[in-house]
Design a protein around this nucleic acid. Structure first.
Lengths: 147, 147
DNA sequence: GGATCAGGTGGGAAATAGTGGGAAATAATA
DNA sequence: TATTATTTCCCACTATTTCCCACCTGATCC
């Protein structure tokens, strides 16, 4: 698996299906992805292997008897579902997740090296707009990196 | 049994029955679940095996002679009931538990890897809303997890 | 330029899941 | 014991999901 990258724009159809760009699909190990709620209003898609690694780490740190742990479990682990990529290269996004991310028709698909994000196009535009200055500040902090 | 995950939204009918999502049902070992009061206003559903393990651990740590222990026992162990899943894939939620979790018509069903939670939809929305900043703080702390 | 191909989109039909409700069985009440 | 209420079992309707195929569009190739 090479690095998953690229920004794409596809449409969610009436049945809640979204085409994964062929460029990304080509880099995936199989035809199954784990879809879950991201932080910020987007969805995260992981290849099952990666997800197992991440969720195992999360589970280690959490106990049913700590409020914070329950919050993490409910917010990240619980919403996750394994979904199969159909013959046309689409995944069906479960309804609860569609609602969470506010997906309507136009979606943005981001390849972020090891996982994929899905945003509602409009929501993503607003997110970028709202965080532009924060981004510039973060970039300043990276100043130490020489290039 | 794989991991039970996914967030679903089903409706409690007039007779107090709730469909378990097929996705979750498929991962369950049998057709019996132990239902009990959870922490926060939700119900917990365990496969009998898991429940035995958890309740045994709870009992070990607790003594009849400590007030706190009795509280744990009354709050978690006592309300538990074994319920059977009917042919249509539903479980009947005992009235006392329905009241505890404030279940009305719309319910949220969460698969949390080893057990299932049931929430009133509205109550869950409020819980998430009330804890959003706590969640973001917790997520920041997870920053140590490399991925 | 026209044919071919691949990626993306839409939709019909069959199968499955979720929901509601009737009737029999059981339990509770007077 | 008669009556009422509750639970259980079963069936039926509806919505959703899944599977499959067809179409459109833009790029490539001859």
């Amino acid at each position: 698996m090479e690095l998953l990258t690229g920004e794409f724009r596809n449409t969610l159809d009436e049945k809640g299906r979204l085409s994964l760009p062929a460029k990304l699909r080509g880099e995936l190990p199989g035809n199954v992805l784990v879809v879950t709620q991201g932080i910020d209003s987007c969805l995260w898609l992981f290849p099952p292997e990666q997800w197992r690694a991440l969720s195992a780490k999360l589970l280690e740190q959490t106990s049913l008897f700590h409020a914070r742990a329950r919050l993490i479990q409910r917010r990240i682990l619980a919403p996750s579902q394994e979904m199969e990529i159909d013959k046309a290269g689409r995944i069906a996004i479960p309804q609860a997740l569609r609602e969470f991310a506010g997906l309507s028709k136009d979606c943005v698909i981001l390849g972020i090296t090891k996982y994929i994000e899905i945003w509602d196009a409009e929501a993503y535009r607003k997110y970028l707009e709202a965080n532009e200055s924060e981004f510039l500040a973060a970039a300043e902090e990276l100043g130490g990196l020489t290039f």
